[in-house]
Design a protein around this nucleic acid. Structure first.
Lengths: 152, 152
DNA sequence: TTTTTAGTTCTGCAAGTTAAGAACCAAAAA
DNA sequence: TTTTTGGTTCTTAACTTGCAGAACTAAAAA
């Protein structure tokens, strides 16, 4: 049975690129990451990335620099070959996600400060709503802590 | 015992504003929301917001429009008073957060497409890593679904 | 009717961002 | 030593954003 690949690599890179863009990367950074996710073999050199994405060297260089810095990609090398071969770093990506999720703690502590500024007697319903919301965040945070404790 | 409020309202608005900015709002949109979170009473009119934040009418108008559209705030009115009094909408905020979290499903389905493009025989370890990562996302999504099913 | 209030919408600009192009550089090859 | 390879860094153009200011509008007050 021949497998049908409904959507081309190019199209999928664009589509995923848009998603990464929406989650904070620049269009090109997103496309570089998407390209590497789809790459077969999973490691590609500078020129292959540049050629596929038809972008300038400087843009590719900066994208690689950025993604390396965020630990969303790493690279491997082969002896007798000066080029670096870049590939997605799933561990780094996961760590980043974990960090983003746990950034919730900032919100939790800020809501704590908000509550400490409130006069409970004045608008008890509103104070309760904030408290409840903060408790939801605390619940979620604990669920995650448990999950990450168990599953890394 | 007299309560000491360590940090001023102004400072807290700036601090929270920066946090909201980092999570996608513009600086001013973030500050308006932060101001309303701290407001006592919890509803403030256009001019009070403008005065506190020292911003232009148009900027405040657009911030309010934006936050209303995202359902992060609502307003109440009082008979014989034409002004609208804006206040944070905790239900709407929570709903937005929930929606943002469940936007993860886009990533899950994209990784599904990535996997369908992969030749499993070629780099089984990498395919497994992606599969594992996708499963983590699925786990997290389910944890949220369960939590929200139980606790609203 | 005119004026004031409570905003909204339009216009414009300063600041920031994205990516291109060219100049540059270090290591390896010739 | 010179040239090529594999990039990085600097500069710049095009575009986007965030917000101010001014013009505008509809409802209420005078």
């Amino acid at each position: 049975m021949v497998e049908e690949k409904k959507i081309s690599k190019e199209e999928l890179v664009e589509k995923m690129g848009i998603h990464f863009e929406q989650s904070g990367l620049t269009p090109l950074h997103g496309r570089v990451f998407a390209y590497l996710l789809l790459a077969e073999p999973s490691h590609k050199d500078f020129f292959e990335i540049q050629e596929f994405l038809k972008a300038s060297k400087s843009a590719i260089s900066n994208a690689i620099k950025f993604l390396l810095d965020k630990e969303m990609i790493t690279y491997i090398t082969f002896s007798g070959d000066r080029r670096r071969y870049f590939k997605v770093n799933l561990k780094g990506w996961k760590a980043k996600m974990k960090k983003d999720i746990l950034a919730m703690s900032t919100m939790i502590s800020m809501l704590g400060e908000v509550l400490s500024h409130k006069n409970v007697d004045k608008e008890p319903e509103f104070v309760n709503e904030i408290t409840d919301f903060r408790n939801v965040l605390l619940d979620i945070q604990n669920i995650f802590k448990d999950y990450f404790k168990e599953k890394g």
